[in-house]
Write a protein that binds this DNA or RNA. Structure first.
Lengths: 141, 141
DNA sequence: CTGATGTACAACCATCGGGTTGTACGTTAG
DNA sequence: CTAACGTACAACCCGATGGTTGTACATCAG
């Protein structure tokens, strides 16, 4: 039960991908217009392979998509992924604004979903306290 | 050259700090209420020192602040830093929307381009020119 | 056909990141 | 005072990252 891994890892990949200036530039460039990998590579002071790796990281994070076209691989930025990242930030901020009661909801599941259906999950134990963080620790030696 | 380093590294630190689930949780926890480091540490399945390091990373990124109080160190989340991160994301998105105004910090694109309707995508292989990227070998033969 | 171009991928290397333990030190509780 | 608590920090693993070079292969230009 440690914070829905899927969404947590998605967020990890997203922010990690954004935590590099080169990659942010690639996103910018490919948002304004498709670019082939070698076109991109020519713009940066590093090897083609290095840029290739950056693109791969961005792709795994969903920030760009690649599409074969002849012998080229066109890279296109994905604005939706940026929105996704923004959403995640907003969620944290919302917690601060007190607009959240189910903290573990945002920590575990990014989908607040429509109605707060009662039959949500089997979780929901410690509502009184917030954030059980990961609620497993304190072992006895 | 290369994208103002100061702000670039700021962004690097911010996103890097956010690229870890434990750290995001710490931000959440400390946004809802101050917590001492050891209080935080008790909530996570890792050593005190590990949590200490996470807090340090968050602090360097400006996402939390520490304040001594007796023998405790109270950690408080900083919502402004989250806003800052959001601003950075919005900048990238704005490029895409063609609302570039201060893109200086992102890329020096002299091509205001035609109607940048959001529904572009099919754009063209814009001449590219100096995206400066990193101001080295970007010459077209 | 041959050659240049664009990709993919493996191997390698140096550094960073996240985690651990251990130690030292100030502060608070008894 | 002494003991427990909260913190800081160093030293140390080890896996992940970011970069390189080198090779292989497909596609496009002549």
């Amino acid at each position: 039960m440690v914070v829905h891994q899927e969404s947590a890892e998605r967020a990890n990949r997203l922010f990690h991908a954004l935590a590099d200036a080169t990659r942010r530039e690639i996103v910018t460039l490919t948002l304004t217009g498709e670019q082939s990998v070698s076109q991109l590579a020519r713009r940066f002071p590093m090897s083609f392979a290095a840029v290739q790796k950056h693109v791969a990281v961005l792709e795994r994070a969903g920030l760009v998509t690649k599409q074969r076209q002849g012998r080229e691989q066109r890279v296109r930025g994905n604005a939706d992924a940026l929105r996704e990242a923004r959403r995640l930030l907003d969620q944290l901020a919302d917690v601060w604004r007190g607009r959240i009661d189910r903290i573990d909801a945002i920590l575990t599941d990014p989908d607040p979903g429509p109605g707060p259906g009662p039959g949500n999950s089997e979780n929901s134990e410690n509502s009184g306290e917030h954030a059980h963080a990961s609620d497993r620790h304190q072992e006895e030696p």
